[in-house]
C-alpha cells in the first residue's frame, strides 16, 4: 500500500440522506400530529356547539390549561434527563397554601407572593434533586417519598384550614382574573415561560446537555458533562415551576385548601408523555409537552361542552396516552427496521 492516498471519492450515499430527512420528519411529526389532533378536536366540538369557541369558552379553556402547561414544562426538563419528579402535585399544594397563609389579611404585592411560591418550590426541588443526583437513588422512589413528605407537611400545617378569596389581596386575585388585550394573564405567563424554556433547551449548552444526559449517560460522562449538577438544576427548575404554579393557583382560585393539585403528578407525567417526551429520556420538546397538556385539558372541556358524561374523561385520557406512546413506539420500530434494510441495500450495492 502507498502512503499517498488521495481523499477517497465521495461515495454516493443518497439513500442515507433521504432516510435522514424521513427520520427528521417523524421526529417533527409528533408535535405536528398532536397539534393536528387538537385542531380537529376543537373544530369538531365547535361544529357541534359553537359556544365552545365563544370568548368565554376560549378564555376558560386557556385558564384551565395554563397551570398544567406550566407543570408540564417543568416536568419535561426532568424527564428529558431520564428522571422523573412525582412530587410536583404536592409542591403545588404546599406552595398554594403557604402563599395563601402568607397573604391572608395582608396587602402583600403580587411579586412577593410569586417569589415566595418559587422559593418554596426551589427548596423542594433541590432536596429531590440532591437525593437523585448526589445520593444516586432511583428518582421514582425518592420523588414518591418527597410526594408524601411535602404533602404531609402541607396537611399538618393546614389542619383542614381553608384560605378564602376574601382574605386574599385584590392585587393577587387580579393576576388570576385580569387580562391583557383580552387575553388572561395566566396563559400569557405560561406561554412566556414555555417559550423561554424551549429557547433555553434549544440554544444553550446546558440545555442541550440535559438531552445528552438522557440520551446516553455513558456518552455524557465521556463528554465531560457535569451530570449531577445538571440533573440537580433540572429538579430545581421543576420545583421552582411547581412552586410558581402554586402561587398562580392562589391567584386564580383565591380559595385554597391543603390538597390542591392532589394527584396531579400523574396527569402532568401523562401530558409530558403524550406530548412526545420519551420517559426514557433524550427526546421531545417542551412545546410537545405543552401541547400534550393542552390536549388533555381540552378533552376535559370538550366532554363538558358535548355533555358527555364527565366519567368518561379519565378513560379517554388513559386510552389516549396509551395510543400516543404505542403509535410512537411502533413508528420508531418501523423506522429503525427501514433504516437497517436501507443501509444494508446501500452497502451491498457499493
Amino acid at each position: 500500500m502507498t502512503t499517498t492516498i488521495e481523499s477517497p471519492p465521495d461515495t454516493a450515499k443518497a439513500p442515507q440522506r433521504s432516510a435522514s430527512s424521513l427520520v427528521d420528519a417523524v421526529f417533527r411529526a409528533r408535535e405536528i400530529s398532536i397539534a393536528g389532533a387538537l385542531v380537529l378536536l376543537i373544530l369538531g366540538t365547535y361544529l357541534a356547539n359553537p359556544l365552545f369557541l365563544s370568548d368565554q369558552g376560549v378564555k376558560d379553556l386557556l385558564l384551565n390549561a395554563s397551570i398544567l402547561v406550566l407543570l408540564a414544562v417543568g416536568q419535561s426538563a426532568v424527564v428529558i434527563t431520564r428522571n422523573i419528579d412525582l412530587s410536583v402535585g404536592s409542591v403545588v399544594g404546599l406552595s398554594a397554601f403557604a402563599c395563601g397563609k402568607f397573604v391572608a389579611g395582608t396587602d402583600h404585592g403580587v411579586l412577593t407572593v410569586m417569589l415566595l411560591g418559587i422559593a418554596i418550590g426551589v427548596v423542594c426541588g433541590l432536596v429531590s434533586g440532591a437525593l437523585v443526583s448526589f445520593g444516586r437513588v432511583p428518582a421514582l422512589v425518592v420523588t414518591l417519598g418527597m410526594l408524601y413528605i411535602i404533602q404531609g407537611i402541607d396537611y399538618w400545617w393546614a389542619q383542614g384550614e381553608q384560605i378564602s378569596a376574601s382574605d386574599v389581596p385584590d392585587a393577587v386575585l387580579g393576576l388570576g382574573s385580569g387580562s391583557l388585550l383580552g387575553v388572561p394573564y395566566l396563559p400569557l405567563i405560561s406561554l412566556v415561560l414555555l417559550a423561554a424554556t424551549a429557547y433555553f433547551l434549544r440554544s444553550y449548552r446546558s440545555g442541550r446537555e440535559l438531552y445528552a444526559i438522557g440520551s446516553s449517560p455513558e456518552a455524557a460522562r465521556l463528554a465531560g458533562i457535569p451530570i449531577r449538577r445538571r440533573v440537580l438544576a433540572a429538579y430545581a427548575f421543576s420545583g421552582a415551576v411547581a412552586g410558581f404554579a402554586g402561587a398562580l393557583w392562589l391567584a386564580r382560585f383565591g380559595t385554597v385548601v391543603a390538597d390542591n393539585a392532589h394527584g396531579w403528578e400523574l396527569t402532568v407525567v401523562s401530558a409530558v408523555v403524550v406530548g412526545g417526551v420519551a420517559i426514557t429520556g433524550g427526546t421531545g420538546t417542551v412545546w410537545g409537552a405543552a401541547l400534550g397538556a393542552l390536549l388533555l385539558t381540552t378533552i376535559g372541556s370538550v366532554l363538558v361542552v358535548l355533555k358527555v358524561d364527565s366519567f368518561w374523561q379519565g378513560a379517554i385520557t388513559g386510552a389516549l396516552l396509551l395510543l400516543a406512546i404505542s403509535v410512537d413506539r411502533i413508528v420508531n420500530l418501523r423506522m429503525t427496521a427501514a433504516l437497517r434494510k436501507r443501509s444494508a441495500r446501500h452497502d451491498h450495492g457499493a
Binding site: 438531552y211 438522557g214 440520551s215 446516553s216 455513558e218 456518552a219 455524557a220 465521556l222 433524550g282 427526546t283
Partner: peptide
Amino acid sequence: EPTLFPDL
C-alpha cells in the same frame, strides 16, 4: 465502539 448520543 463509539459512544454517541443516539437521539442527537
